[in-house]
Amino acid sequence: MKLTLNGKSKEIMDSSTLAAVVRDHCQNPEHVVAELNGSIIGRALWENTVLKENDRLELVSFVGGG
């Protein structure tokens, strides 16, 4: 199924969990923050959050900045 990940269209397996998507795309999941359709999803809920078609997912983490 298709969804938007960090602004890009991505094809992922149906019924993927948020946790799975994070594992597949992030080297250091421990510092990643997830925002699904505008709401922050707490880490504890990732395993139980099933993604749907056309979801907008943002995965952010720290980078250098002033």
Binding site: G7, H25, C26, V60, S61, F62, V63, G64, G65, G66
Partner: peptide, 12 residues
């Protein structure tokens, strides 16, 4: 200080 950005999902 650090900033928050979208992680680069294509590069790890």
């Amino acid at each position: 200080t650090v900033a928050l950005r979208r992680i680069d999902i294509d590069r790890h």
